[in-house]
Design a protein around this nucleic acid. Structure first.
Lengths: 163, 163
DNA sequence: ATTTATAGTTGACAAAATCAACCAACTATG
DNA sequence: CATAGTTGGTTGATTTTGTCAACTATAAAT
């Protein structure tokens, strides 16, 4: 199993390269950074998304989140609406333009995946999805708590939800 | 299969999050950035590694590579040796210190993987490795050519070698 | 009511990368 | 052989992105 771990680490590294630095960032994005993409994604798929949510999901500090959201606002992709429940908090929501941009990016990513999947054996495809799901599940456990601390405050238990 | 692609794209995104921004960068590295790690890794595992190789693998421009290698030199982790075949080119090689640092980081990553793997079903483990390998293999095909262009020059055919 | 915690922002600054212009060494071509 | 063009790499100026620490404002607790 030691060998498996070594192999997996290597695979992971290459994965990261193929779809991280060179992939998502490099290709899809029409003028938005990866952090901005993460923020957009979070704001879209979480309801009542506030700054902390964004900070957590984009793996930046809360001031980082402020900057990111500010940039997205400047680009007309999101809007800040005051939380009626809590005057300090604010919900970040996507504008129509933001939604359509995010959709474009997600579609592009999906397309890429589809092309790759097409080159694989159908049985292997199915297995891949399942195995990857199980892996992320396992990564959520004690070993996988990869939250980055936000200024001062210790990372609060609230687990990042994969899937 | 469309649904599979969508799912995979999502999994990938989360993967990226867990091991990219918050993972590798955040945890392993004793004072080196992710780009520096990529460079170190490349210089180690490729023989006769020049600046272009580093630029390609770290997904930066060639001036970016210059900066990265410079930093690594300052930290005493790599050394530039002149290519006897070509006076312009230079091979980047690791110092002993560089090698030991890289090993430490890789071990740490392997450890993390091991912990995650330990939380998985043994059969699933095996399947994961195989499926992931197949996936990266497939990604190398026409769809997977995710090289970033270096200033001006078109990305040359030379495929990035996974695995 | 006063203290303390929480949500978010801002100014100053640092890290890392880009771009464009550049030099030096190699390769063809006439 | 000379000279034009290409390729590998570097550098100065600038941009992008993020941190840190100090701050404001609202909410919760004692």
């Amino acid at each position: 199993m030691d060998e498996q771990a070594r192999q997996l680490a290597l695979l992971m590294e290459n994965m990261l390269y193929a779809f991280g630095a060179a992939g998502v960032d490099g290709e899809c994005c029409e003028n938005i950074s990866h952090g901005e993409f993460r923020a957009l994604h979070t704001a879209r798929h979480r309801n009542n998304c506030n700054m902390q949510d964004i900070a957590r999901k984009a793996a930046v500090t809360k001031s980082g989140a402020t900057r990111i959201v500010h940039r997205l606002e400047d680009k007309g992709l999101v809007r800040r609406v005051e939380d009626p429940k809590d005057g300090r908090s604010c919900c970040v929501t996507l504008t129509e333009e933001g939604k359509s941009l995010l959709k474009r990016i997600e579609d592009q990513l999906t397309n890429k995946m589809q092309t790759i999947l097409a080159a694989m054996d159908p049985a292997m495809r199915e297995v891949l999805i399942i195995a990857l799901g199980a892996f992320l599940q396992a990564a959520q456990g004690p070993a996988g708590n990869m939250d980055r601390r936000t200024e001062g405050e210790e990372a609060k238990g609230e687990q990042a939800q994969f899937i």
